[in-house]
Amino acid sequence: MDPNKVIICRCSDVTLQDLHDLFKEGYETFDEVKRIARVGMGPCQANTCGKIVRKEIARYFNRPIEDVEFHRMRPFTMGVKLSAIKEAAEDEEES
């Protein structure tokens, strides 16, 4: 199987090869990979790629999957326009 042709993260176009290259460079946790490659930061918020990345970390570093920490989840679950937050804050001030 050619790892260059295997897409792990569709949102940010990260391949299996990209992931292995990052592992080789020393990035070992989900959060590290996320910050460098943006895996899990797109519209899917790791709901599609998360499980695969976790499995790949487990396989590559030979760790049990339950020991591979998932990424830290923060609001929001999807993109929210700053203007919408501003409007909500203004409405709250008025009332």
């Binding site: 199987m1 042709k5 295997v6 709901n47 499980k51 326009k81």
Partner: peptide
């Protein structure tokens, strides 16, 4: 496009699940 907050005393989450994808060539 409207953003708002909601305060609850109790919250029940029944958000379900998402489908797995798998790695293979040209997936």
């Amino acid at each position: 496009d409207r953003y708002f907050k909601l305060q609850a005393d109790s919250v029940i989450f029944a958000t379900g699940a998402s489908e797995h994808s798998i790695p293979f060539e040209n997936n």
